[in-house]
Simulated scan of single mutants.
Amino acid sequence: MKTSQAFKWFSLTLAFGWLIIFVLIPNAMVVLASFLSRDPSNLISLEWNILSYQRLLDPMYLEILMHSLFMAGIATILCLIIGYPTAWIISSFGPIGRALLLFMIIVPFWTNSLIRTYAIKIILGTNGVLNWLMLNLGLIDKPIKFMYTEAAVIFGLVYILLPFMILPLYSAIEKLPNSLKDAAKDLGANNFHYFTKIMLPLTMPGIIAGTLMVFLPAMGMFYLSDLLGGSKNLLVGNVIRDQIMIVRDWPFGSAFSTALTVIMGLLLWVYFVQLNRRNKELDNG
């Protein structure tokens, strides 16, 4: 018993220590740096101010933020439209079929996302696979420019992040008992009513979780914007990367990072509120 208790405390200490050293302290340093001043020789100086946050209200940066929110939002909606029926179909299979389909969804994680982005360039390029196929099928007379557009960036975001939407949706749908559908039919509900009145509300935590797992990373994937979108289709991650690595304005880059963290916190708060509401409805119902 003493050995088991000691191992328990050792594991908890190790986990909390890792979180403190590699999560809490770095994020605290970023927040603190956002309130300091830029120093060309030492990167930052200990002059406290909120100038970096005031710069976030600059129309140029607000435009980048809104454009980033737009592309991330479109990518998230597309992932949800594709991911929900996919997760539903997977949940309808037997144990072996589910395992095989989930394995096929997870396999892309074995390849670096940067390599997969270069594969997208081969597909969408002017002389790429997609244009070659459409030309040979007679659908177009000359190659279409897919690269360096908003559509290319959104396509890349959906391609890279779709598994992050499917997995939490599958987890939520798979937990629904089959008796719910039978009970709904006995009470006169058709498939549409079952989906909108029962299935959709009960799987809302999975929808919100998938949305968080797609929307937030989508705003920071600067390499996708660099490789697929060109200089006119920037994400917030591009601004943060440029401010830290090129301009060397650490306070402003930290302020942008902190703003993203706040957005993430608000979305997580919405998720937990929705989850608690669902649990209360289940307890009362």
Rank of each mutant, 00 (worst) to 15 (best):
A87Q: 04
Y170M: 02
L224A: 01
R278T: 15
K280D: 06
V214T: 14
L275W: 09
F192S: 10
M66K: 12
A33F: 08
L65F: 15
S254C: 03
N191A: 07
E150Y: 09
L139N: 10
T149C: 07
L130T: 07
S254K: 03
Q243N: 11
L227K: 02
N178C: 05
I74G: 00
F7R: 14
K197A: 02
L65C: 05
L275M: 15
T203E: 03
S68L: 01
L80G: 00
A6G: 03
G220P: 06
A33G: 02
L162D: 02
K197N: 04
F222Q: 09
A151S: 13
T117Y: 11
Y118K: 01
D226H: 12
N112D: 14
P217M: 05
F70L: 13
G285N: 02
V129P: 01
W48V: 15
L124C: 13
I50S: 14
L135T: 00
M264A: 15
M71P: 07
W110V: 00
Y61Q: 07
I106Y: 10
G125K: 05
I115H: 02
N127W: 05
L139I: 15
P85M: 09
I160E: 11
N42T: 07
M66E: 09
A255L: 02
I50P: 04
P26S: 06
L78Q: 03
I166V: 15
S113D: 14
F195A: 02
L69T: 01
I173A: 00
I123F: 10
L282H: 02
T203R: 09
N127R: 06
L282R: 12
S37A: 14
H193M: 10
A152N: 00
V30T: 11
L102W: 03
I90A: 07
L135C: 01
I173Y: 01
D186K: 00
L32E: 06
L234E: 14
M66L: 11
F272V: 07
R98G: 03
I82P: 04
I115D: 02
I123Q: 05
L124R: 10
L282P: 06
S171Q: 14
N284T: 08
P201W: 04
P26W: 05
K181A: 09
V273E: 11
E281T: 07
D249R: 08
F164T: 07
M221S: 01
Q243H: 10
L65W: 08
M71T: 06
W132K: 13
A33Q: 13
F222S: 05
I207Q: 08
D141M: 09
L268R: 08
K185H: 14
Q54Y: 09
L24M: 10
Y53M: 03
Q274Y: 09
L135Q: 10
F272P: 00
